[in-house]
């Protein structure tokens, strides 16, 4: 370590020797102790700029950004299985609901239709029997 190297390191890395390359720490400290009158102003000058640079702070990440990034991450197989199960359950649910709706329609609407048919005589089993008896049996064939 000499004056030029000490100055180069302070100019590059700032006034805090602990932030200089690790290999230079011990020599730099020894040099600063041995040449304090020259070295301390050199470090203080660099430290003044360090202090200014520290005034530049960046706001923490927005929650929405954190969430967008987290959601884009790989999913565990378990989560995939859960997702597939949910999708399957969803499709099953739709089919079940469709069947239930069909059964409901059958149960709720058919009697009404039958009842309507009964009312005008179209669906009355008794009428069918009577029609069967009224119509002549064709015996010429066979």
């Amino acid at each position: 370590m000499d004056f030029a190297r000490f100055r180069t390191l302070a100019d590059a890395y700032g006034g805090d020797v602990t932030r200089w390359p690790a290999a230079d720490h011990d020599m730099a400290r020894a040099f600063a102790a041995a040449h304090a009158v020259w070295a301390q102003p050199c470090l203080a000058d660099a430290a003044a700029l360090d202090a200014l640079l520290r005034q530049s702070v960046v706001a923490p990440p927005a929650r929405a950004l954190r969430e967008r990034i987290t959601v884009a991450a790989p999913q565990t197989p378990a989560l995939h299985r859960a997702w597939r199960w949910l999708v399957g359950a969803g499709i099953g649910g739709v089919l079940t609901a469709a069947c239930a709706a069909g059964v409901f329609t059958g149960v709720a609407v058919a009697p009404l239709a039958l009842a309507e048919g009964y009312a005008n005589g179209q669906n009355d089993p008794a009428n069918d029997a009577a029609r069967f008896l009224r119509e002549p049996i064709d015996v010429t064939e066979g």
């Binding site: 530049s56 960046v58 990440p61 990034i69 987290t70 991450a73 790989p74 197989p77």
Partner: peptide
């Protein structure tokens, strides 16, 4: 762990690295 989809590891990496990346990009 994050590569295998461990969500706690994902959150830990985001918490640890996102502020650094954001500061890097901002500057």
């Amino acid at each position: 762990l994050a590569g295998r989809g461990d969500q706690a590891a994902v959150r830990a990496l985001v918490a640890g690295k996102l502020p650094r990346l954001l500061a890097l990009a901002r500057r």
